[in-house]
């Protein structure tokens, strides 16, 4: 498990660090597009219950907002 943890995490961190070096400083007045309501960096509010059924009907969960614990869903 720990070995797999690092095989997942290390490439992700390297990829992320490489990606971040390509970032440019964006001023507040240049953020009209990234501040658009549809650009929000999270699942949409209307996906709330969809995320619940993914949690109940699939074994994989997390890393996308939504419920991460509490409640059964055992139906």
């Amino acid at each position: 498990m720990m070995k797999r943890f690092f095989t997942v995490l290390l490439p992700s961190a390297v990829l992320l660090a490489t990606g971040l070096t390509g970032c440019v400083t964006v001023k507040e007045y240049q953020k009209s597009r990234v501040n658009d309501a549809e650009m929000e960096l999270s699942a949409r509010k209307s996906e709330k219950f969809e995320q619940n059924f993914y949690l109940y009907r699939e074994g994989a969960a997390g890393a996308n907002g939504g419920k991460s614990g509490g409640g059964c869903g055992c139906n």
């Binding site: 990606g19 971040l20 390509g22 970032c23 440019v24 964006v26 953020k31 597009r33 990234v34």
Partner: peptide
């Protein structure tokens, strides 16, 4: 991270 005027991650 805001990467540029059009892209964020």
């Amino acid at each position: 991270q805001v990467i540029n005027k059009r892209l964020q991650a």
